[in-house]
């Protein structure tokens, strides 16, 4: 087992375990973001760069944010209202400074930019676009239609109707 895959797998499984087992839903959602990122990096490890980008955009960018939004919208009586900020403020500031300093150091002390450049353009991505626009154009249109219908349906379901007040009991 390669070291990269071992780290990826351990990270992903632990994060998924946290997403399913943590008590507070907010912690579970954060852990889910970690698991989704782990899966994204596993795609990268498999050499599927495009799917990695899609995974980060759709899952980490949209789905996770949506889940957190709904989490905030559905706060019941059982959820205690806590202060938003982490209590020792120096801890959060320290982490932010550490990350920023690390990034600055990485840019300043980078030995050679050219080592990270790819050999040539991404041929697979070009082929993917060609295939999507030719052979699988019907499937592409179908998925677009499905997403539109799902969006309209989601808005209709979540719409606040005057007769949907909770029963007084």
């Amino acid at each position: 087992m390669s070291a990269t895959f071992a780290i990826l797998a351990t990270w992903t499984v632990l994060a998924a375990l946290g997403a399913m087992a943590l008590r507070k839903p907010v912690h579970a959602a954060l852990s889910l973001v970690g698991a989704l990122m782990g899966v994204a990096f596993t795609y990268l490890n498999l050499g599927a760069e495009f799917i990695t980008a899609v995974q980060v955009l759709v899952y980490v960018g949209a789905v996770a944010i949506l889940i957190v939004f709904v989490l905030q919208l559905t706060r019941g009586e059982g959820v205690e209202g806590e202060s938003l900020a982490v209590q020792p403020a120096s801890l959060g500031l320290g982490i932010a400074l550490l990350v920023t300093g690390g990034l600055i150091a990485a840019v300043v002390f980078l030995p050679d930019w050219r080592a990270a450049w790819p050999e040539k353009g991404d041929v697979a991505l070009k082929r993917l676009g060609e295939v999507l626009m030719n052979r699988y154009v019907v499937a592409l249109e179908a998925i677009g239609l499905l997403l539109t219908i799902a969006m309209i349906g989601a808005v209709l379901i979540a719409l606040k109707r005057p007769d949907s007040q909770p029963p007084e009991s």
Partner: peptide
Amino acid sequence: VAAAEVAVGLA
């Protein structure tokens, strides 16, 4: 499809 599913599910 999963994106459509999660939108409807959250609604």
